[in-house]
Structure formats: C-alpha cells, structure tokens
Amino acid sequence: MQTFDLEVRGLRALNETLHAQAGNTNQTVWEVINAKGSHAIAVGLDAPIEVNVKGSTGYYCAGMNSQATVHVHGSAGPGVAENMMSGTVIIEGDASQYAGATGHGGLLVIKGNASSRCGISMKGIDIVVHGNIGHMSAFMAQSGNLVVLGNAGDALGDSLYEARLFVRGSVKSLGADCIEKEMRPEHIEILRDLLERADADARPEEFKRYGSARKLYNFDVDNAAAY
C-alpha cells in the first residue's frame, strides 16, 4: 500500500500521481492521509485502483470517477462523486449537498445521511444511502437507481425522468410528476443486488418505489402549474 500525505505533497501531486496509475499498475492500493476537508481529492481517476482517504473531504471528492474505488473514512463535502462514470465510491460518514450529481454510472454508497439534492440530474449512477436524504433529492433525475434506507425530505424526485427511487422510510413530500409506483419482481431484484453491494442491512420488500408519472414529458397546458 502506498501512503500519500496530502498536507505535505499537495493536491496537484496527489491527482497527478493517481492519474498516472495505468490499468496494469501494481500499486493498486493507496492511502491518503491529512485530507482535512480539502477539495477535489482523487478526481478524474481512470484506473482500477483503490484509494482510501483518511478523514473528511471537501467539495467534489472522487468527481468524474471511472473504474476506481474511492473510500472516504470520514464525511464528504458537496458534490461527492459528481458525474461519476463507473467504479465505486463509499463514504463512511455523511455526505453534503448534491451527492452523486449527474453521475452516469458506478455505485455511490453513503453510510450516513445525505443532504439536499442527492442524486440531482443523475444519469445512470446507482446511489445507496444508509441514512436519510434531504430535500429536492433526485431533481430531474434521468436514469439509475437511488436507494434510501431512511427517510426522504421534501419534493423527492421533482421533474424526474426515468430514474428509479426506492425509499424504506417516510417521504416528506413528492415533487412535481413523481408518484409511488408498483414494486414488481424485477425491481426487487435490482434492489436486492444494490443492497448487497452496498453492504446494507435491509430487505427489498421493506421499500416503496417512486418514479415519474411522465405527465410533464410533453407540454400540456393543463399541467402548466407544475412547470
């Protein structure tokens, strides 16, 4: 395992070093110490490496991640794993706003709670939150799965497209065009797989599914108030 002291060597050196790890590297496991809430830690990675960040991170940790596993042993600031393409990002603590925003793929696991706008504009990413999520989560979510073991705040799934939302606890309110939907066997399967991969102690049958009513897909004057 390679240890990288962020405080001593700086952010540029960290990302440059991690970017230099090609697919066939032997140095597959990295530990980043003295994270101290720094922004843009381990962004734009594109190799099957594992990066363990000791401490909490600032904005955009693991942004645009591909292939890599980034494990934050602390909490994450805004926009963790934003626009992730593939790979896995695990947050042991809580995550701030916009966790997993616009993510195209991969798995984001938040062991604590996530704040507002979790999964905003998500485009294929899977997000599993062990705790609760804040308001306006999955706003304009396009595709992928958002799984919440706790409760969801106001306006869940506002203006969403084809993303699937699974919530075990309560939902304070649903956003425009978001409705509860029938949980079919294929959804149970998706959920079972995600819960297992996210190391989450819950049964798929305990969840409710929410998705788009698809009423805002084409303009209709009678829905004008919802736009």
Partner: peptide, 13 residues
C-alpha cells in the same frame, strides 16, 4: 472557484 479547481485537476491544468 472550487468547480474550476476540480476541472483543472481532472484535466491536469
């Protein structure tokens, strides 16, 4: 400012 930092880090400045 932080967003610009992130993009610069991803694209190596």
């Amino acid at each position: 400012e932080i967003k610009i930092l992130e993009i610069r880090e991803i694209t190596g400045w």
